[in-house]
């Protein structure tokens, strides 16, 4: 499953979705690829997981996956997160695909909150579970006005919110879901990945698909598409960085680290991407 040709090809039912549903979602995916960053409405189906628990990502994956696929599912970077385990089990049972925690072996990576630290390549597909697809939700509530703003690429309100954030807080405080301009046209929410992962999307060699089950929207970043964080020319986009922080397991200081409070006070840091961290430790152990 790696080309548009594959997407257009027919595919039989799987245990979660009938062929009709697969076709409808693929149609939405194809539209999303054709108009990078545009939120394509789709008829979100009832999934065996509750909406808000990755049903959007699951539907995208289920519309793509076949028995020949190798699937990696992560939650907050962790292959063993409860949500990841449940979704993976469902995907494998329904499709007959095989599982992996190694990014390089996978054909599809479904994720919540992270992009794997290990780079993905052309031919792989990244499926992101999206809780809130609308990047402008915080600045505009009216649905028709939101549609208009996207249609006219009128993003002044978002710029104003970035201006206000910087004026009031002295910095851009927005953490996850940083608004980005895709292919110089539509603004998307890179939800809900941290700022750390945003640069990875820019001209990425792989296809990234965003599925929002509750909001019934799919959007895409095709391979080699520009993804520019909305930021003022003279205010460089910055990713999260804590000086001196290192992973307590692998010693990394150039991966996305999450902190845990220590009982004795202070905090310790660890890689959020557990399989990447493990691989690093093995590598170092082998050396």
């Amino acid at each position: 499953m790696s080309t548009v040709r594959d997407l257009v090809a027919t595919r039989r039912d799987n245990a979660v979705m009938d062929a009709g549903a697969v076709r409808a979602i693929r149609r939405a995916i194809l539209t999303a690829i054709a108009v990078p960053g545009y939120q394509v409405p789709f008829g979100s189906r009832e999934m065996p997981v509750a909406r808000g628990w990755g049903s959007g990502g699951l539907q995208v994956t289920m519309a793509l996956v076949g028995s020949a696929d190798v699937v990696k599912v992560i939650d907050q970077g962790d292959d063993e997160g409860v949500n990841a385990v449940n979704l993976r089990r469902l995907i494998l049972r329904a499709s007959g695909a095989t599982e992996t925690d190694d990014v390089s072996e996978s054909t599809i990576v479904q994720t919540r909150h992270r992009i794997p630290e290990a780079g993905m390549v052309d031919g792989q597909i990244l499926v992101l579970q999206v809780p809130e697809p609308e990047p402008l939700r915080g600045v505009e509530r009216d649905t028709r006005e939101l549609e208009r703003m996207h249609a006219e690429a009128d993003y002044a309100k978002m710029w104003v919110s970035l201006y206000e954030d910087r004026v009031r807080n002295g910095m851009i405080t927005r953490t996850t879901g940083y608004p980005c301009v895709v292919a110089g046209r539509y603004v998307i929410s890179t939800t809900p990945i941290p700022r750390w992962d945003v640069p990875a999307l820019h001209r990425a060699p792989y296809l990234a698909l965003f599925g929002a089950g509750r909001a019934k929207r799919i959007y895409a970043i095709p391979p080699d598409t520009t993804v520019e964080p909305m930021t003022f020319e003279d205010v460089p986009f910055e990713v999260e960085f804590t000086p001196g922080a290192r992973c307590r397991h692998c010693g990394s200081d150039d991966s996305y680290l999450v902190s845990t409070p220590r009982e004795e006070g202070g905090e310790t840091w660890a890689c959020s991407d557990t399989s990447w961290c493990r691989a690093r430790r093995h590598q170092r152990g082998a050396q």
Partner: peptide, 26 residues
């Protein structure tokens, strides 16, 4: 005006709509 945002922000609204992207210039 948007009364919830600052005086500068209200002007920034017009400027960014016209393509201004430099924070200091705004």
């Amino acid at each position: 005006l948007d009364l919830r945002i600052t005086a500068g922000g209200n002007i920034a609204d017009r400027l960014t709509a016209a393509g201004w992207r430099n924070f200091a210039a705004i």
